[in-house]
Nucleic acid binder design. Sequence first.
DNA 1: CATGAATGAGAGTTCATTCAT
DNA 2: AATGAATGAACTCTCATTCAT
Lengths: 202, 202, 202, 202
Amino acid sequence: MQAKKDEVKKQIEAAALQVFFRKGYPDAKMSDIADEIGISVGNIYTYFKNKKELFYAVVPPSLVDYLKNVLVESIHFDNQTSFDDVNDTDRSAIVQEQMKLLNEYSMQMVIIFERNKGTVYSTAKNELIELMIETKKPYLKPSYKRYDIGTEENMILLNIIANSIIDTILDLLKRDMSPDSRIRIFEALSLYRLHGLRGLNE
Amino acid sequence: MQAKKDEVKKQIEAAALQVFFRKGYPDAKMSDIADEIGISVGNIYTYFKNKKELFYAVVPPSLVDYLKNVLVESIHFDNQTSFDDVNDTDRSAIVQEQMKLLNEYSMQMVIIFERNKGTVYSTAKNELIELMIETKKPYLKPSYKRYDIGTEENMILLNIIANSIIDTILDLLKRDMSPDSRIRIFEALSLYRLHGLRGLNE
Amino acid sequence: MQAKKDEVKKQIEAAALQVFFRKGYPDAKMSDIADEIGISVGNIYTYFKNKKELFYAVVPPSLVDYLKNVLVESIHFDNQTSFDDVNDTDRSAIVQEQMKLLNEYSMQMVIIFERNKGTVYSTAKNELIELMIETKKPYLKPSYKRYDIGTEENMILLNIIANSIIDTILDLLKRDMSPDSRIRIFEALSLYRLHGLRGLNE
Amino acid sequence: MQAKKDEVKKQIEAAALQVFFRKGYPDAKMSDIADEIGISVGNIYTYFKNKKELFYAVVPPSLVDYLKNVLVESIHFDNQTSFDDVNDTDRSAIVQEQMKLLNEYSMQMVIIFERNKGTVYSTAKNELIELMIETKKPYLKPSYKRYDIGTEENMILLNIIANSIIDTILDLLKRDMSPDSRIRIFEALSLYRLHGLRGLNE
DNA sequence: CATGAATGAGAGTTCATTCAT
DNA sequence: AATGAATGAACTCTCATTCAT
């Protein structure tokens, strides 16, 4: 019985994750989730007190810091030497490992950092950006002289770029493709971040 | 009295734009808009037939093609020579003009290309991406050999990058800053697109 | 000033009568009435306390008994001799006089006896029927032997016929036509009531 | 549970039919229907998508042509010989059968041909009148000479009479009585139509 | 007097949540 | 445990009525 019970609970969680991912929290109807696995709406309430509790069971706050770290590690967005200093085999292993983690929680990641309306995660993306910038500050030059960007503008620029890096990763995770394709595109995006379109297009 | 009427209508439009910008069409309640300017909900219906009409008065379809063109022009995302070939004065004039246009409709742009759920604009961003890729196809190399990306992966990569370029512009427009700052950051972002972080950071 | 005031009041009453006639009380909007004569909604309230008061100013209860009597007189629905016993000139004069009265209050009549929803006149038609039957009872045979109609059924039959006679008059009054046409059709209807389709069609 | 559901659905339909019959579509409030059977307004939406769907479930368009035909057949309004040519037994059987049909859908009939505001049936009565006149035209004399009615007036007269015949049937159906009474009155009304009050009263 | 913008009550509809079965 | 019918709060929209101008 317990096994059965756990089984249903897992089904509900899987269905809920799908629906929260597709529609976001406010537009995800309890009936959507129930329909997804062919159970009654009321039965969800046997396992979860309410919609909110179901949501946080499926996208728990504990996941946030973990995913932030994975993303910060995955990106190295400002460390130009990261890919130059390690050999290809090592680099590949690192990327593969990171990708595995990102894939595993891809839907949660999108929910936490993008489709977070109506949840406590509405500030998560900005916090991640802060973390990215903070973590990598030592490597950053104080300003980009060529364009005479002062400290504040500099921060905004970094903020926008960090934002866009996150969006780029999330965008990649949203798309359906083979793991190999994903890794290749992931690496191409790294190159784009470091060297721009010219870097890609030479 | 007529003056009063126009005044209130403008207030409603301004409030509506704000609320649609902040919450998106489906989550923008008529009461949010009314509360914003301290009038009754019913009074909005003195000026606009219904929520939909108010929305399209504030974010008219006629704006879409116009903004698409401005954005495509503003980006030159793949034309590496665009900034090298013209002198600084001309370039500055062009950028200033584009920025002015983008600033004027910054909220509409975000609504059309990002917070477009429940509106006719839900496909606008993808159409813009298609337009960007299509317009600039002649300049693109058929594939990025270094990462062995085949045609399909190539398209996905371009799609993600185009997406991110749009997001970047929208992000910039969402932030409150002086016109000068905005232009400088805008130009820095162009540099980032072309040469990556290394291009910025040298 | 008083003259002007009275003029506007009369205009409102005329417009109200039109609109109540066309749409009935509940569906007649104050704005319909105002639009009809190109004044503001608020101005109606200068002359009439509210919609109800305007309605009863235009269709006053005092009219009801009067119109009931006119109709009862006009119909002679059971007096088979009415048309045979008087000469044509006299009869014509009587009918013309009745028609004049019916025409004058045609809209009120339709409102009182037919489009009376939401007003105190919802029972007026039944009261008129009662009056018609009561008034003419002396002339009625106690039962229609041929169809074995007992007293109660007899009353229902009379009720239905009376009802239909009223409807027929109202129907005639609703239609747009010349006074002459109206009189001729009115007389043909009398013949139909007395002798049926065969009476008409021989 | 299924039994319960069907039960409630039937209750809602019965209540809706009652309320639509009493008030007409626009004035029938969902709360009227809910109150009628002591359920919540929202619960009606468990069974019917919206007010319109509930209405057309209870008064389906498929009924219209059927009822038109039954009425046209039932009336023979201009065929004076219809009752003379068949023997009493046959005639009785025919009338009984027609009455059964009319009784079964009496409320729907009133709704379709009389209380049809806001529905697709607003033209049904006029269409039925046209059908009645068209169907029976061969039997009609070109004009009623005695009253010198020209073609147009003739049509108006026929229209009014047809209208009144329908009203008469609907009126009969609205009243509560035994089937036998209804049939006797129905037959008396036929006689009235053919021979008028004199025909009844001799 | 006249205006018409503003209000508020009430209608139809949706959906998270409850609860009898 | 499971069902899904039932509830009620909240949203969009309408219109008689009020009131500042």
